[in-house]
Amino acid sequence: MGTLVDARNIRGVYYTGAKDVVAVDDVSIRVEEGEVLGLAGESGSGKTTLGSIISLIARPPLHVEQGTLEIDGKVQELGGDARIPRTWRGSVVSMLPQGAMNSISPTKRVRHLVWDVMRSHDRRISKEVALDRARERITALGLPVRVLDAYPHQLSGGMKQRVVTIISTLLNPRLLVADEPTSALDVSSQKILIEMLLEMLDQKFMSGVIFVTHDLPVLRTVATKIAVMYQGRVVESGPTQLMVDRPQHPYTKALMSSVLTPEPKYSKIRIEGMSGFDRTSFDAPAVIHS
């Protein structure tokens, strides 16, 4: 399997008037074919910004000052006034934004959304063809076809999130960028969504996923590799197991040590979390495991 996405030297800055805020500072990441890259970090780390730059939807006040994106050997310049071909957005890279499940129009049935999405890329596509594609997908993933006729409020949170996830990949994007797709869900729905996401990858509805989240335990169940971001930089990246079991960078260590899961040791010990670490050590050079 080859490299699917190679994003290099990305720098994203918010021009906010008073002072510029560098949200993503010279970051390079790579996603191999068929893999899930977990992009982890706390609020303000730049993970969502990086996700939106890679999914080609950066817009003011966010400006991409430099960077290139290579997908399937085709190189796309991102910086400055680079023109991004319309065909890339949605069909090469697709973004599932945070809270998308709660931002779909409450007055329209799901099939309307399907039709909107398909039509925006192919003006001439017929309603039937669009719906057939959706029906096929939904059946393939074991969901009831009737969700297409439902209004959003008739679906549970978990179901809604699964539906928008399916819709976001209807155009067979090469890469799906999913921003906190599990954060608003109950643990059981999280598990189901993750299983579905992996199944979608298996069935090649998309060829790779960037999974943006603050939730490390979730990443451990879904990600092939994890990249940890801190203050706009990737401080450490590597295979999931290695990152979880033997983190090298002080910030990654601190982050991992702040995670509380129901494991016997946590009911006995006191954890200092981030305050147990020297913050200046977080500026140490990045550790990149291959």
Partner: peptide, 21 residues
């Protein structure tokens, strides 16, 4: 948490992602 009796608690605990496999 470590020896739940009710089915719901058991499921909840099984579904919670853990950090260590």
């Amino acid at each position: 948490i470590f020896s739940p009796r009710h089915a719901y608690t058991k499921r909840l605990l099984a579904d919670v992602p853990k950090l260590h496999s």
